Measured scan of single mutants.
Amino acid sequence: QVALSRTQVCGILREELFQGDAFHQSDTHIFIIMGASGDLAKKKIYPTIWWLFRDGLLPENTFIVGYARSRLTVADIRKQSEPFFKATPEEKLKLEDFFARNSYVAGQYDDAASYQRLNSHMNALHLGSQANRLFYLALPPTVYEAVTKNIHESCMSQIGWNRIIVEKPFGRDLQSSDRLSNHISSLFREDQIYRIDHYLGKEMVQNLMVLRFANRIFGPIWNRDNIACVILTFKEPFGTEGRGGYFDEFGIIRDVMQNHLLQMLCLVAMEKPASTNSDDVRDEKVKVLKCISEVQANNVVLGQYVGNPDGEGEATKGYLDDPTVPRGSTTATFAAVVLYVENERWDGVPFILRCGKALNERKAEVRLQFHDVAGDIFHQQCKRNELVIRVQPNEAVYTKMMTKKPGMFFNPEESELDLTYGNRYKNVKLPDAYERLILDVFCGSQMHFVRSDELREAWRIFTPLLHQIELEKPKPIPYIYGSRGPTEADELMKRVGFQYEGTYKWVNPHKL
């Protein structure tokens, strides 16, 4: 086992960053958080920038500027975001240094004079007029057009580079997404736009490419001749908990499936790229999406959770019991969808996408189930092999396979070949997804960000279904809070070829 401390991990990262040409360590950078008073800024962006600063992973002359409508001070920003920093008493001095680099400007999102004030403020910072500028839009999409237009007109660096990070949702359907994309691309070049999907920053999602293309053993079996089906799962054990009003506007397909799960599907299904260059990788992902037809209604199961009468606390409440959810809402909190990649490698292999709230566990994984062994000599005792990439929690890679049961006879039983990170790298604290992705933006690497043509294809696949749901308002199937979801989803999976045995229990190697 390799035991690495946080300091050692960050030392390795620093070495990698400083050796590259793309990370300008000594240049002045300004990180501007648009929507600095909001939840995302408070819980994710400010803490992430602090962790990067604490670990010495930001360029040395980096300033952080918050911008929002609320009249706040840096002290206010500190008060609301610091509880999420997880700072230790030993880091007190470092924390003071961090907040000394912070400033805040209040202004409207659609007022040109406010942006001119913001620009004057940035120019007044040390070497601010020639600094590289990175704008993070932690804002609702309704203000994107006004904000990007004003940034472009008043706040661009004339000497350094300018980059803009856009948070999902990128529209509600193909038409609104196209409108937003066309607007942003009329102001910024594609190499300046970073559409963030934080799932692409997760260690195991990034590991998929290495697993596939750096190991000879997987190449020959990664196709329709050997793989019976692919299941991509995202499960949350909690409901909307008072935030249903926002969720109800989008629903589970827009929230998770059309982005996170579809991105994971691309990494499983794509061909080997010409290189690890950002556009070479994204070219292959677009090719996969172009091979997927629009979702067919007979390959869809929609569910909505109801309270568990035997549960406790939140578990007793259904989705419609959330006071922020519109009365009688038919918005799905669970969806199972089957897609097919219609190309030579994957023809006929079902890709089953499942996601839901208020389920029995927290889990995100990719599961490849292989065909049955031909010419069975073990009297149907063999179960199908599976390769599982567990994204969260407890990152893991393992192969479910058959071995001989101890004893006199040739009785096979299920076991696993474990390729888990935790076994080799004991207690290594890896940077989280937002840390990686923000560092990628500083480096100018777009590999783990969504390109406009990729986004367009993703919406093309799901828009007809979303429009049909909005028009017909089908009643989702009720499922109990804390269950596996509607049984109809299991029946759909069985119908397209997935075999669920229920006889195997994964042993978490992190707890051995």
Rank of each mutant, 00 (worst) to 15 (best):
G407T: 07
E314H: 12
L419E: 01
Q263P: 04
I469Y: 13
Y398G: 00
A332P: 12
F442N: 07
M264K: 04
T324S: 14
L419R: 05
Q304M: 06
G313E: 09
A358F: 04
T403L: 12
Q258V: 07
L339W: 03
T330I: 12
M270H: 07
G307L: 07
S275K: 04
L419Q: 09
K400A: 03
T399C: 10
F370K: 04
G313P: 10
C291F: 10
M264F: 05
D322S: 05
V373H: 06
P309T: 12
P464D: 11
A335E: 00
V268P: 05
K429I: 14
G313V: 09
D376S: 10
V325C: 07
D372A: 08
I377S: 08
S483Q: 09
G482V: 00
S293D: 10
L289H: 06
W346V: 02
W459M: 02
E454V: 07
E344L: 08
N259Q: 05
L455Q: 03
I480Q: 15
T324P: 07
D321Q: 08
L492D: 00
G313W: 10
L261D: 00
K383T: 15
Y340G: 09
K404P: 05
D372L: 01
C382G: 13
T420Q: 09
E413G: 09
T330W: 10
G444K: 10
L437M: 07
Y479R: 04
D453K: 08
S329L: 02
L368F: 06
D310Q: 11
L455Y: 03
T333M: 00
L353E: 01
T420D: 14
T316H: 09
R367F: 04
G485N: 02
I469K: 06
L320Y: 07
R451Q: 03
A335R: 04
G311H: 10
K287C: 09
K287S: 10
T399V: 09
R456D: 05
F378D: 04
K285N: 00
T463M: 02
G313C: 12
D255H: 03
D279Y: 11
N259H: 01
Q258E: 09
D321C: 09
R345C: 10
Q380S: 11
V306L: 12
K473P: 12
Y421I: 12
A274T: 14
L289Q: 05
C355R: 00
Q369R: 02
L289N: 00
I352C: 00
P474L: 13
G318E: 06
H379R: 11
Q304V: 06
N423H: 11
L437D: 05
E342G: 10
K287N: 11
A358D: 03
E414K: 05
H260W: 03
F334D: 04
T330M: 14
D418T: 01
M408E: 04
V325N: 05
L471P: 06
D453Y: 03
L265P: 02
R282S: 04
L439S: 11
L359C: 13
A396H: 04
P406M: 06
T487V: 15
L289I: 12
V300E: 04
Q446K: 00
L471M: 08
G497Q: 08
E314M: 10
P326T: 07
T399K: 00
D280Y: 11
D490Q: 08
G348M: 04
I352Q: 00
L387N: 03
E361F: 02
P406Y: 01
F378L: 11
C443L: 11
I477R: 14
R495M: 12
V338M: 12
L387R: 02
V366G: 00
T420P: 07
L262V: 13
T503P: 07
N259S: 05
D440V: 00
F442A: 12
M257N: 05
F351E: 02
P486W: 06
Y481S: 09
M264T: 08
D279W: 10
Q263V: 01
K475S: 11
E386V: 03
P309D: 13
S483K: 08
E365V: 04
K272T: 05
K473Y: 10
L359W: 02
E294W: 09
S452L: 07
K317N: 11
G375K: 10
V295S: 10
V288N: 03
E344G: 10
A458G: 12
R424E: 03
D255C: 03
A396I: 02
H467F: 12
P350D: 00
L289E: 03
V441N: 00
A335P: 02
T487H: 14
E414Y: 10
P273D: 06
L466W: 00
C291E: 13
G422T: 15
E284N: 08
K357G: 01
F410G: 12
W346C: 04
E365M: 08
R460D: 05
L302M: 14
L465C: 09
I438M: 11
L353Y: 02
E454M: 02
L430F: 10
K290F: 03
L492W: 10
G313D: 15
T324R: 09
G502E: 14
E342P: 09
A315R: 11
L465N: 02
N427G: 14
V295G: 13
E470R: 09
P323V: 14
Q499R: 10
D255Y: 04
Y434F: 05
I438H: 01
R424S: 06
V388C: 12
D283H: 04
V341F: 04
S452R: 12
R345Q: 11
R367C: 01
W506T: 04
A458C: 08
N411Y: 10
P323A: 15
S452C: 09
L439V: 09
H379M: 09
Y479F: 04
D440A: 06
L265I: 08
T463S: 10
L289C: 12
R484M: 00
V388E: 03
G422Q: 11
N277R: 10
G375Y: 12
K505T: 15
Y398V: 00
T276V: 13
G328E: 13
R484V: 02
K429Y: 12
V337D: 06
V391S: 03
V441Q: 00
F410A: 11
F378S: 05
N259G: 00
D347Q: 14
V300S: 10
G375I: 06
I377C: 11
T420V: 08
Y481D: 02
Q381T: 09
Q392F: 06
E488I: 10
F351Q: 00
A336T: 15
R451A: 04
G497P: 00
T333S: 10
N308C: 13
P464W: 08
K363L: 06
R451D: 03
Y504I: 04
F334E: 01
